[in-house]
Design a binder for these strands. Structure first.
Length: 566
RNA sequence: UGGGGCAUCGUAUAAUGGCAGUACAGCGGACUCUGAAUCCGCUAGUCUAGGUUCGAAUCCUAGUGCCCCAGCCA
């Protein structure tokens, strides 16, 4: 194979799963059938996106199918609330399961029949050991387990007890059904794993018709088999479940799906486990599963990430079996790349400082042409109003600028984007606080539109908004959720101790171009020189828009100046 | 020797016995009406030690490091 690579960060060569599928296709399998099998017990996150892109992506690429299956085998943890959210997220990413939506609970009856079969063949037994006793009997990682006294129970007795378990004749925990495999196996999963537990709990779909529920290992592989899943893709921690997965299928003599494991996604400066995300939500560290700081699909969506950027990210990170932590900056790169291509440019002043153009006639107002997207001329131009009083960013003016400060300072010239070249002729400050309150400039009428007919070079170009017609908008600046790359690394400390106290800054008084005052819908735009922003879908109300910063623009100036400015 | 898995620039990933490549990050430059984008360049890697071979990231041997497993969770 040629080591070819394009310029988009992913090579044309296949990952090991696609390579295996291609080879399986050559040796007889007609088409690959995959599945995305979430448990409806939380919201999907970017790690699930990796799995979704893999499973649905393979189906698309190889002319196969990908099912959506809810792994709803534990009614004590699952909730119908999550189901719709999961479906919405998968759809939003752009994938379609058509009519192939399944539930593990659809197979409860079949699973029960399979269990009867194994009991009948002496390969499963009802155990009356308590949970604690089962743990003791299981042994440890380095010592073999001991066989339960129940292991010798007769087939007839097992059948009778198992049926009684189903009938609800027993209390929770009184009995379990176990596979009879090998209590001395080095693989803990093979030490007579529990197949069913008694749980007198109503199920969202099957209601009260079951008082026993199958365990993951018993339900998952058989569900795969029933659906004709050819390649059952899951994460690395299930690697040592594969012998059990294969054992059940072999004993039953049913269609043999093949489990293949890949490394789960880890992202720097965040956490990616439902348990920990749940904690952030339930303990109020964030506003909800869709808080724009969350690595959930719904959070990223609300943050302004596009489906394309997430899919591109998933393609770039690849599929391997190596534990890894992907740099958050790669995700940010993907969204910048996408939004740069499509986002409408706007001028918005986040931290307004008043500028008076002293030689510009009072009361005069004119409209100037601004380009909507320099990357895409088809997006056209718009008019922006200009007048004597403007706002610029407070940090675009310095009384005492450092070297290479290309913005406004006393005596210096700067270009107001799409407007005029102006020179700072003075400023006022609040005598009490020393804060600059107003900057005075003179404009050069010959530079209308921002060009310099005399050919003079002006290094700095800054954005501005006409004071009179500015819309007041709220802007939320988001930063990484945690202050350390891996919040879980320190075993001595709770990960929430590493939460970034500045992960959200709210700016209530930003000055925007008039058009932004009453916009609606999914609006991704670039605030020039500031970053990509999206209209918040939850907190925006008509006439009072709220914008979330998706990601800042790359900023070599703040890096160069040590982050002190800009 | 409890079982299973993984080791390639800072971070990811490619090379399947034949030039260690790509992306992100970093650094420098060009260009620029966004200190953006774009373009050009630079820095930087095969866990260790042996062995096989004309040739090893790749095969063999022995180490080392890291991850997962003792739920009636998934």
């Amino acid at each position: 194979m040629k080591p070819k690579a394009d310029n988009n960060g992913y090579s044309e060569s296949e990952d090991f799963i696609r390579a295996r599928i291609r080879s399986d296709l050559e040796s007889g399998i007609k088409k690959p059938v995959t599945r995305f099998p979430p448990e409806p017990n939380g919201y999907l996150h970017i790690g699930h996106a990796k799995s979704i892109c893999l499973n649905f992506g393979i189906a698309e690429e190889f002319g196969g199918e990908c099912n959506l299956r809810f792994d709803d085998t534990n009614p004590s943890k699952e909730d119908i609330e999550y189901e719709e959210a999961i479906k919405e997220d998968v759809r939003w990413l752009g994938f379609d399961w058509e009519d192939r939506i399944y539930y593990a609970s659809d197979y409860f009856e079949q699973l029960y029949e399979y269990a009867l079969q194994l009991i009948g063949e002496g390969k499963a037994y009802v155990d009356d050991l308590s949970a604690e006793e089962i743990r003791e009997y299981r042994g440890t990682l380095s010592e073999p387990g001991r066989e339960s006294p129940s292991r010798e129970r007769s087939v007839e007795e097992n059948l009778r007890l198992f049926q009684a378990m189903r009938n609800g004749d027993f209390d929770d925990g009184q009995y379990v059904l176990r596979a009879k495999i090998d209590m001395a196996s080095g693989n803990m999963n093979m030490r007579d794993p529990v197949m069913y537990r008694i749980m007198k709990k109503s199920h969202p779909r099957t209601k009260d018709s079951w008082s026993i529920y199958p365990m993951y290992d018993w339900a998952h592989g058989q569900s795969d088999s029933i659906e004709g899943i050819t390649h059952s893709l899951c994460t690395l921690e299930f690697e040592d479940h594969r012998p059990l997965y294969d054992w059940f299928i072999a004993q039953l003599g049913i269609f043999h799906s093949r489990q293949i494991e890949f490394a789960r996604l880890n992202l720097s400066y965040t956490v990616l486990s439902k348990r920990n995300l749940m904690k952030l939500v339930s303990e109020g560290f964030v506003s909800g599963w869709d808080d724009p700081r969350m690595p959930t699909i719904s959070g990223l969506r609300r943050r302004g990430y596009t489906p394309e950027s997430i899919k591109d990210f998933c393609r770039k990170i690849g599929i391997t079996k190596q534990d890894s932590v992907i740099d958050m900056e790669l995700l940010e790169h993907s969204v910048r790349e996408d939004l740069n291509r499509r986002a409408q440019r706007m001028m918005v002043v986040l931290d307004p400082l008043k500028v008076v153009i002293v030689n510009y006639p009072e009361g005069k107002e004119e409209e100037l042409d601004a380009v909507n997207n320099p990357e895409d001329p088809s997006m056209g131009k718009r008019k922006v109003p200009f007048s004597r009083e403007l706002f610029i960013e407070r940090d675009d003016f310095m009384e005492d600028p450092p070297k290479k400060f290309y913005r406004l300072s006393p005596g210096s010239e700067v270009r107001l984007r799409y407007a005029y070249i102006v020179r700072c002729v003075g400023f006022e400050r609040d005598p009490a606080t020393g804060e600059v309150t107003e900057v005075h400039c003179e404009y050069d009428p010959d530079t209308r539109g921002g060009s310099a007919p005399d050919g003079r070079k002006v290094r700095g170009t800054i954005h501005w908004v006409s004071a009179k017609s500015a819309s007041r908008v709220t802007v939320r600046l988001y930063d990484r959720l945690f202050t350390v790359p891996n919040p879980m690394a320190d075993k001595q400390r709770e990960f929430t101790e590493f939460l970034n106290p500045d992960s959200l800054r709210i700016l209530e008084n930003c000055a925007a171009e008039p058009a932004l005052g009453d916009c609606a819908g999914d609006i991704n735009c670039q605030f020039e020189r500031k970053g990509y922003f999206v209209l918040d879908s939850v907190d925006s109300v008509s006439g009072a828009p709220v914008f979330n910063r998706t990601v800042s623009l790359r900023d070599s100036w703040s890096r160069q100046s040590g982050g002190k400015v800009g």
